[in-house]
Structure formats: structure tokens, C-alpha cells
């Protein structure tokens, strides 16, 4: 809700209105400025900057419930190596080729996979003897080539991740109890991450520091008084570190809290 160029509160989807002195958005600028605010409240050149802000999600996630532990060919058996991060990134060329496919709108046939088995450090996450394998997968471009869509590609993408891991840990297929595939489209629909970008917008040089999210608007304020930004789309950007939230809070306090 905006009155006389000032944010005065929010309206929930159920129609409830909540008034507030300060509104601070932890979601990305596209959602904040083009979905939650009536058109006409923002200057054109600012909106131009918002519309230009790049998301281009490029990763997916595959979570698996396992009936045992994967047995890697290169390091057979159970050991400390399973407790940390395991990465399928055998060469720079491998990763670059994975990227090449994504540039033209295809998920990588030989993806970069970053895996962890959190149940080895926190047994409470699964029933006794069972495990979880959490796989971060790149590349999975949000925008697929013409004729492809994520809802039909989703399980094929998941199969390919399993097949890739199987090349390194052949027993993986026998121990999967359940599999959850999260595509960039799912990240957008379910988790509110536009275009499935995990950092609420690309962390490229032209979108960092005093240019994040929009040149001239990197100090957590917005053209609307009392409306602030505090999520990963603000400086210093994405990642689980809390820095944007803290810096935003400091700026809000500096402004007197309203």
C-alpha cells in the first residue's frame, strides 16, 4: 500500500490489510516492484533498471532418500570422505562443456554436481540406517530451448543426475528410496525465486556493490519512502550470510525507523 509516495503497509492475499511505518522486502526487485506495487508509483528509469535486472537461474536441486550409503569407485567403503562435500567436477573442460549446453537452453548432459550427505553429521534428519543425499546441480537453465519445458524435462533431468552419479558410485540406483527434483521453474513457483536464481539475481559485476539491484539504489532504500529492500538482491548479494539483512536494518535505523 502506498499513500503519497510513502509505503503505509501491506495487503495480504486474503484481503487483510496490515499498516506499518516501515515495509522492508526480502524478495527480489522484480517481485517487489512489479508485482507488489501498483504501476504508476515508480519513476520510469528506475523501473527500466528493475526490468533489466538479470536473474537467469542456472541450477537445480535433486534430493534423495537413501537406503544406505553410496559406494564411490575412487574411494570404496564408508569413511570420512562421505561427511564433507563431494563434487563431480573432474576438469575445467568438463565444467565448461556443461556450461556450453546451458547457453543454448539445454540442461547439462554431464553436469557439475555438488553433493552432501547431511545425515552423517545429523542423524535426526532420517530414520536409523537411512540417509539423505542432497545434490546441487549445474547447469539447469531457467529458459530452455524452444520446444522444451521444465515440467516435461524435470524427471529426465533427475534421471540424468542419478546416471551421472552412478558413473562414480554404481550402487546409487539400488539404494534410492525416494527422489525429489527441484527445477529452476519450481524454485520460482514454490520458493519465490524469480527465474529460479538462487541468489535473487545474478552475481555478475554489473549487478554488484553500488549497482545492486539498480544503479543509484544500492543503499537499501527505494524511490518510495519507508519501503526498503533487505534480501539477497541487495548488496552484498546472495548466500546464507545475513549481511544484506543486517546492513538494511542499519540503514532503516539511520533513517529513524520511519
Amino acid at each position: 500500500m502506498i499513500k503519497n509516495g510513502r509505503a503505509s503497509g501491506v495487503v495480504l492475499a486474503n484481503g487483510d490489510e496490515i499498516y506499518a511505518d516501515v515495509v522492508s522486502s526480502s524478495v527480489d526487485p522484480r517481485l517487489t516492484y512489479t508485482r507488489m506495487i501498483e504501476p504508476g508509483n515508480l519513476p520510469d528509469d528506475f523501473l527500466e533498471g528493475v526490468n533489466r535486472y538479470k536473474f537467469r537461474g542456472s541450477s537445480g536441486k535433486v534430493n534423495m532418500a537413501l537406503d544406505g550409503l553410496p559406494n564411490f569407485k575412487c574411494m570404496p567403503g564408508v569413511g570420512a570422505h562421505l561427511r564433507g562435500a563431494m563434487s563431480i567436477s573432474p576438469s575445467v573442460e568438463y565444467m565448461e562443456k556443461a556450461y556450453d549446453e546451458a547457453k543454448y537452453g539445454h540442461w547439462s548432459s554431464h553436469p557439475y554436481i555438488d553433493m552432501v550427505i547431511p545425515t552423517l553429521t545429523d542423524t535426526s534428519l532420517a530414520p536409523p540406517g537411512k540417509h539423505i543425499l542432497s545434490c546441487f546441480v549445474q547447469y539447469a537453465p531457467y529458459k530452455l530451448a524452444p520446444g522444451l519445458d521444465w515440467d516435461t524435462e524435470k524427471e529426465k533431468f533427475g534421471d540424468n543426475v542419478v546416471n551421472t552419479i552412478a558413473e562414480y558410485a554404481p550402487n546409487i540406483k539400488d539404494i534410492i528410496l525416494h527422489r525429489q527434483v527441484v527445477t529452476p521453474l519450481d524454485l520460482e513457483r514454490e520458493w519465490g525465486l524469480s527465474e529460479g536464481n538462487i541468489f535473487q539475481g545474478e552475481l555478475s559485476l554489473e549487478q554488484l556493490f553500488f549497482l545492486r539491484p539498480v544503479a543509484g539504489w544500492a543503499q537499501f532504500r527505494s524511490p518510495i519512502k519507508n519501503l526498503y529492500m533487505c534480501g539477497s538482491a541487495t548488496h552484498p548479494g546472495g548466500g546464507i550470510m545475513g549481511a544484506p539483512g543486517r546492513l538494511a536494518a542499519l540503514e532503516i535505523l539511520k533513517d529513524g525507523g520511519a
Partner: peptide
């Protein structure tokens, strides 16, 4: 001016 100044800063690394 603001617009072109931001362009210089933004464009370089793009």
C-alpha cells in the same frame, strides 16, 4: 549525467 555515468560503470564488465 546520471544515466550515462551509470552506463559507463555498468557496461564495462558486461
Amino acid at each position: 549525467g546520471k544515466k550515462d555515468m551509470y552506463r559507463v560503470l555498468r557496461w564495462g564488465p558486461m
